[in-house]
Design a protein around this nucleic acid. Structure first.
Length: 806
RNA sequence: GGGCAGUUGGCGCAGUGGUUAGCGCGCUACUUUGACAUAGUAGAGGUCACAGGUUCAAAUCCUGUACUGCCCACCA
């Protein structure tokens, strides 16, 4: 036999071994040996096509690969279904950036050309991330790769939309929603991130009706008094500060001239519809129902009482701007307030803001408003204030709440379904503590704004009649909405308009929230709805479709940040469309942070690229190092040291194997039983320790304790096998001990394979033919005799049963 | 404001009641012996955040404190 190199070189091995696996076909459940019957399936959390592998993916992928490889070796018919997500806004932004380098915007080339451009981009770059998963060793069935914008998938999405629509759960509404002025689209609450920012809290005087205010343009106000720090901290808000100032809170309401509101956004006062106080706030009791004059706009607005107001904040009186604040919108609804839209979709002031302000951007307008109010002596004071500003999670720009016509999905019943699925333990979170986050969101759910004003995504299957607005409707039976705008639902492009019978209807310009399509992932990828429709035919032929065989899937592996964004939505979608959970278990793994415990971020340069780790240390070492640090759902402060340990370990494994291979080449190893009586103390010890590790690793993997399993294996292999037994065998130097060497090595390779698949496979392939199958992937997972602690404790007799297996 | 984690040798972490608290990386000394110097052998290094309590026994259970991190929420 050719001498193996002294040092394990992953570069020479990995691509070769991966090619061997792909050629074997064993990634595909239907090409596994016939003995693999019981299905075990995982659908991958589809990475964005814009993504490139980061540490989170590496951890996520490695865990799934460990599960799949282990189950495959245990004889399951394993399917790990890969794919990618079209990632609406993210992808659109990337392509827009590309256009920008050419000096173009998407509007320059138009919608159709733009979408074409995105597809081109996808063809070129969209599968990069999947190739990167291959570098890690992922044993996905690539023949089943799916994309959330595949033709079949698009059909599934439309079907789902229609389903909800028929149930009456989809409706259109004018609401104040989160709007990103840069991405030019609505965003759901979950697509928003908050950033702490230093700003001010402005205290503004709103004159009560019938109060003269100084509108003299030449009036010079007294220098503004900054509230001394001591006073600020000793007093909660301004209420107490002002209490002493008879002018505002004096003995009788009659003496008051103003009500003071506190705000972080003075520019929105141009769109105020009311001033609100808490109903229980005694300070303002007599003012509720009175009118104030909104400065600048000189509009009469009421003082109202609403329980949403926190009387502890500021002065306890708050300006209400239904158009530009989500809470204010709610208040506006319940008090039937008029809504003034003073900021437009581009983040500029509208005509409604007044001609002096129209066209200004937010900071300009803010400054101008403050100047104007100061001139009229209506600024009570300005306090420095730090608060959290809503930012677009895709582009990082500040969110602007805006009133906008959007499509919503009613969440009440869906949320209930998702809650009961988990309460009844049909779907289990591991670790269980994450259920809390899930319940918390579902129990306080709002309807889901599913429309987005971008171009890249699933178009809403909604069509508008072009002249229907004017004509009367006669056909009442059709799915015609009777609002001002006439629209209908159609999965295909309609030949002619069912409403007016004449026009060429236009499809809605909106697309669906990316997560609407991701929510269908576990079953849409397996062929829903087409495969479900065909199931009857297949039954006659005694065949089963993928969806029948592999749905529900066994486990979903993901991180906590998308529990609500994605996991919850998959759960209710599964029940709604398949009448069945999408997965039994949800394993929530750690998040990988920098060594200092900070978020890894590309822009800050704190990220570590797993590909460079693979390049430097090899894929096995990278997997090893990541899993080594995975201990439950404790966040990982990522250090490179364990990867170095992984590299060393691979080398150790390689060299121990070299030794064993040398030994067994001395004489032919026969497959016959060991004579128990001839076993030495060391023989018994290693066999017993092997049994123990088989047992514990099996348990650890069942319980998703990957780091623990790996550490157990490491200790066993390095310290028990290499340090003790190999050294001992050198002394023994007989056939029996060589047989034990081979047996323990082979067992170790099997146990280690899910963790370090490349090196273990490479070594396996070097074993004598009589001792191996086509690939380590389909070797039988070792099994230890049933755990018998009592007996094992008494003596090292655990070896009794194992000898028959050698 | 609410919730959840964490605090163990230089660094990153295991360890959920019971012998001298372990591991990786690093460090010190010696060893190139015929698998491996990406190694072997030996070793240094920790009052297990702090304060109480439960117990025959606590890093481990309970209570509180401090610090750090994360998440959620309609503090405008």
């Amino acid at each position: 036999m050719k001498e193996l190199p002294r040092v394990y070189d992953p570069k020479k091995v990995e691509s070769k071994v991966y090619a061997l696996w792909e050629k074997s076909g064993f990634f595909n459940p239907d090409k596994l040996p016939k003995t693999h019957k019981k299905p075990f399936s995982i659908v991958i959390p589809p990475p964005n096509i814009t993504g490139s592998l980061h540490m989170g993916h590496a951890l996520n992928t490695t865990i799934q690969d460990i599960l799949i490889r282990q189950k495959r070796m245990r004889g399951y018919k394993t399917l790990w279904l890969p794919g990618t997500d079209h990632a609406g806004i993210a992808t659109q932004n990337v392509v827009e950036k590309e256009l920008k380098r050419e000096g173009l915007s998407r509007h320059d080339i138009g919608r159709e050309k733009f979408i074409e451009r995105v597809w081109q981009w996808k063809e070129r770059y969209g599968n990069i991330i999947l190739d990167q998963l291959k570098k890690l060793g992922a044993s996905c069935d690539w023949s089943k790769t799916r994309f959330t914008m595949d033709e079949d998938y698009q059909r599934a999405v439309k079907k789902a939309f229609l389903h909800y629509y028929k149930k009456g759960w989809i409706y259109q509404g004018e609401r104040t929603i989160n709007w990103c002025p840069r991405c030019q689209t609505s965003l759901s609450d979950l697509e928003i991130e908050y950033e702490e920012e230093q700003s001010n809290l402005w205290y503004i005087r709103y004159p009560l009706k019938n109060t003269q205010i100084n509108t003299n343009k030449n009036f010079t106000p007294e220098p503004r008094r900054r509230t001394p720090i001591a006073e600020q901290s000793s007093l909660r808000g301004a209420a107490s500060t002002l209490r002493g100032r008879q002018a505002w809170y004096g003995a009788g309401a009659n003496q008051r001239k103003f009500i003071v509101v506190a705000t972080t956004r003075p520019e929105t006062m141009l769109g105020d519809s009311a001033v609100a106080v808490n109903p229980g706030d005694k300070r303002y009791k007599n003012l509720v129902g009175k009118m104030v004059i909104l400065p600048i706009q000189n509009r009469e607005i009421p003082i109202i009482a609403d329980p949403l107001i926190d009387s502890e904040f500021g002065t306890g009186a708050v300006k209400v701007t239904p158009s530009h604040d989500l809470t204010d919108f709610e208040i506006g609804l319940s008090h039937r307030l008029k809504s003034y839209k003073v900021i437009n979709e581009a983040g500029r002031m509208t005509g409604e803001a007044g001609e002096n302000y129209e066209g200004l951007n937010i900071p300009e307008c803010r400054q101008k408003v403050i100047e104007e109010l100061t001139r009229s002596d209506l600024v009570e004071k300005i306090e420095p204030y730090s608060h959290r500003i809503a930012k677009c999670s895709r582009c990082g720009k500040t969110i602007e709440p805006l009133p906008s016509k959007q499509w919503f999905l009613k969440m009440e019943k869906l949320a209930k379904m998702a809650i009961s699925a988990c309460k009844s333990r049909q779907v289990k979170f591991i670790p269980k503590k994450w259920e809390k986050l899930y319940f918390n969101w579902l129990e306080n759910i709002k309807d889901w704004c599913i429309s987005r004003q971008i171009w890249w995504g699933h178009a809403l299957p909604i069509w508008y009649c072009q002249i229907g607005k004017k004509s009367k409707i006669k056909n009442k039976k059709s799915k015609i909405n009777r609002n001002k705008e006439r629209y209908f639902i159609s999965l295909e492009k309609p030949e002619k308009c069912p409403i007016c019978g004449k026009c060429q209807p236009e499809q809605s310009a909106d697309v669906l929230d990316t997560w609407f399509s991701s929510a269908l992932w576990p079953f849409a990828t397996l062929g829903w709805p087409i495969a479900c429709a065909q199931n009857k035919k297949l039954k006659i032929k005694n065949k089963k479709s993928d969806i029948e065989r592999f749905y529900p899937t066994d486990v979903l592996v993901t991180a906590r940040d998308i529990i609500n964004l994605w996991v919850a939505r998959m759960i209710f979608s599964g029940f709604e469309f398949m009448k069945e959970k999408p997965f039994e278990e949800v394993y929530i793994h750690a998040i990988i942070l920098t060594k200092e415990g900070k978020r890894m971020s590309k822009s800050k340069g704190t990220g570590i690229d797993p590909l460079s780790l693979i390049e430097k240390y090899g894929a096995d070492a990278t997997r090893f190092g990541i899993i080594w640090q995975e201990t439950g759902s404790q966040d990982i402060h990522f250090g490179e040291e364990p990867i170095i340990a992984g590299k060393k370990f691979c080398n150790k494994l390689w060299n121990a194997s070299r030794f064993v291979l040398q030994q067994i080449s001395k004489s032919k190893i026969k497959n016959q039983k060991l004579n128990k009586n001839k076993l030495t103390q060391a023989d018994r010890r290693i066999l017993s320790k092997l049994n123990k590790v088989v047992d514990s690793v099996g348990n650890d993997l069942e319980n998703y304790q990957f780091g623990k399993a790996l550490r157990n294996l490491y200790d066993f292999f390095w310290h028990e096998f290499c340090d003790l037994y190999i050294e001992e065998s050198k002394k023994q130097n007989d056939e029996k001990s060589r047989r034990i060497l081979l047996y323990v090595l082979l067992s170790s390779l099997k146990l280690l394979h899910p963790f370090v698949p490349f090196v273990s496979e490479e070594i396996y392939q070097k074993l004598p033919k009589s001792h191996k199958k086509k690939s380590l992937m389909i070797e039988q997972w070792p099994s230890a005799p049933p755990l018998d602690r009592a007996r094992r404790a008494r003596s090292s007799n655990g070896v009794a049963k194992i000898k028959n297996q050698i």
